[in-house]
Each structure stands twice: as structure tokens, then as C-alpha cells.
Design a binder for these strands. Sequence first.
DNA 1: ATCCCTGCAAAGGGTTTGCAGACGC
DNA 2: GCGTCTGCAAACCCTTTGCAGGGAT
Lengths: 159, 159
Amino acid sequence: MTTNDEQTLSHIKQFFSAYLQKAGHRKTRERFAILEEVYSRDDHFDADTLYMGMKSKNFRVSRATVYNTLDLLVNCNLVTKHLFNSGNAVYERAFGFYQHDHLVCKECGKITEFCDPRIHNINRKVAELMHFQVTEHKLTLYGLCANCVNKNTPHEAEY
Amino acid sequence: MTTNDEQTLSHIKQFFSAYLQKAGHRKTRERFAILEEVYSRDDHFDADTLYMGMKSKNFRVSRATVYNTLDLLVNCNLVTKHLFNSGNAVYERAFGFYQHDHLVCKECGKITEFCDPRIHNINRKVAELMHFQVTEHKLTLYGLCANCVNKNTPHEAEY
DNA sequence: ATCCCTGCAAAGGGTTTGCAGACGC
DNA sequence: GCGTCTGCAAACCCTTTGCAGGGAT
């Protein structure tokens, strides 16, 4: 991890610390350890994978605390939680990363990210038309990734 | 139900029938009863609500068959399945209705539909850029519906 | 010292599965 | 008649909850 990353991580910890204070939650070793574990990953992971990862490093932590802390991190926008079609929740770090959306391959399950700023125009328009106050959006495109398209007999594309 | 609706329903049953045949699945009374129950609703419902609805009409059916049949209906695009942030699946009929997306109120849970054709431009562009074959998309905007905005102290909107 | 947070294990709830009987083909 | 589909209930799996001990404030 570079010095730059460490500065960022330190910044993030301060942010979390301030959030906990403001919300009247305690600053525990476990909560910061889980934050660090989350930011050591750059993928989309589920709660149990995070838990097992910490266990394998001999960190004493419980599933309950992992779930509890992930909720806190989601609430202060340091983590994003997704429910793709698989049914169980996957998480990703969210601080200092571009707002982005997801491609999910129905064949191999691979998750890719993309960013199209035009989504914001849609959000603004719909908010105005429907008198709805949008706080966040989730856009997910399902289909076949480049690898799986090649592996399979041709499918029909919607677009 | 009007004559027109009945013609549509009959058309849908034929479509389902053809799908079952082609896929080598049997055409059972239960499957068509579930299809009919789904198309008698115009809301977003979960599997158990559908099951209870059929039970209350004294139709003998099991949860297992409801789940099984909903899967079949999703596979042949007669039904769409959604996992909003609540965690459990909700379904809606999908045949002959405009492709649309959803607004979910974080306060009262109300689900509203909207349609913005510009989403297709995004899908096309991303498909091209990422070499990804898009077969479907899900766009969901979370926030506060008009009712809940009025009930609450002002929140900050992202858009 | 208070009482929130933790680990552990058990409970919870939506969904899936196993099995014996029923029925589409 | 064969093999799949059904109903029923138990199993499953991810997530939440209850409880007693521990640590942040």
C-alpha cells in the first residue's frame, strides 16, 4: 500500500470516527478493523467472505459484528450494498470512488463497473416529473460479458 | 375483466403454452392457474402473497409450485422479478406492458413506475464500450415519494 | 459505573429440496 | 406406463436476535 493510499485510509478512518461520534456510537477496535478490511479489497464481496477473510488473519470477530458494522458503513456512505439477482447481499467500498453502475454477467457472474453521466439527467427528469426526491440510484445491466459471448452460441441482444 | 382483457389473457396463455411445449415442460392446471393469478394483479407482489391469494380462493396449490412456476414465468419473460433493498423478491406481470423502471420510497416502501427511453441509449453505449451483450437492465431510484417529502423535515436531494 | 457493543449460538424467514403420490404425455 | 410435477414439510442459508460478559465513555 502506497503512502498515498495510507493517507486516504487515514482520512476515511477519521470520517468514520466523526460519523460514529455524531451518531452516538462507540469507537471500537472491531469497527475500525472491519473498515480496514473492507478498504483492503477492491472487489464486490459478501458478508461471510469478509468475515472469513478476517478470521484467516486470526482477527477475533463475529459475524454479528460484521453485519452490524457493514450496516453502519452503509449508513455513512463508506460502503455500498447491492442485491443483484443472486439474492444475497454484496458490498463494496464507496468512498473516493466514482459513482458508477454495474454489469452482471448471467453466465459467469462476473461483475464489471461502468460510468455514464447521462444517468443523472434521467434522475433529474424523473424526480421533477414524479415529484420524487431521489437520494440514490442503482442501475444494473444483465447479459453476457465478452468472454461468455465468445464461449456460447450467439444469443439475441436486446440492444 | 373486459372482453379485450380476456383476449389478451388468452393470448398470454397460448404464449406460455408454447413456451412450455418448446422447453419440454408439462402443461399443468397449477401452472396456468398461477399465470392467471399473476395477471389478475397489477401490483408488485411477493411469492407468499400470491400463494395466500390463491389459497383464499380455495385453490389447492403449494408454495413450492408457486416458486417453481414463477421461475418458469420469469424465464419466458411473462413475469419480472425484482430484488429491491428489502431483500425478498417481488414480482410483476411483464407481457404487453411498457418496459419501465422503478422508484422506491425509502420511507413508506411505495413502488412507482416510470419510463425514460434515454436509458436505452446508455445501454447501447455501454454494450459497445464494454463489449457486453445486454439482455436486460434494472434501474431503480431510491428516495422519498411526494407524500413522504411533505411529511418529513426537508432532506437534501442528490439531484 | 453505565450501558452499548461484542462473541457465540440459536432463532428467524424467505426459498429450496426430498419424497411419495398424481397426472400429463 | 414413464417420468415429471405436485403438495407437504423439513432442510437450507443468509441474516438477525438474545444473552452474558467486556470495554468505551
